[in-house]
Design a protein around this nucleic acid. Structure first.
Length: 89
DNA sequence: TTTCTCACA
DNA sequence: TGTGAGTA
C-alpha cells in the first residue's frame, strides 16, 4: 500500500535537523528566534521540525554561505510571498 | 541521554 | 556563534 506523507508533518528532533542541514543547534535555534523558521513544540517543550522546516533551513544555509544576513533573508522570504501572490492569481 | 533556556566570552 | 550551567 502507498501512503503519502505530508511535508508539513513535524516529527524530527533538532539532532536530526542538525545532521541533515549541517547547522549547529545554536544556529537552528537562533534562526527560529529571528523568525526564519517556525518549528512546533512537543509536550516537553522540545522543537519538532517538519520536512518543510528542514528545506527552509537548507535554503537559509545556502543564503548565509552567499553572505546574506538575517535581514537580507527576511527580505527574500517576504519577496517570495509577494511573488507567490502574484503567480497565485 | 538529549534538548531547552539563559548568560557570558 | 560557541559553550557551560541547571532543568525537564
Amino acid at each position: 500500500m502507498i501512503v503519502k506523507i505530508p511535508h508539513t508533518l513535524a516529527v524530527f528532533p533538532i539532532s536530526i535537523v542538525q545532521k541533515i542541514t549541517e547547522l549547529s543547534a545554536r544556529q537552528i535555534r537562533y534562526y527560529e528566534e529571528q523568525g526564519l523558521i517556525a518549528p512546533g513544540r512537543n509536550k516537553g517543550n522540545q522543537r519538532i521540525f517538519s520536512l518543510q522546516d528542514i528545506e527552509r533551513l537548507l535554503e537559509i544555509k545556502s543564503l548565509i554561505d552567499q553572505g546574506v544576513n538575517i535581514a537580507g533573508i527576511h527580505a527574500i522570504y517576504s519577496k517570495k510571498k509577494k511573488d507567490n501572490n502574484i503567480e497565485g492569481k
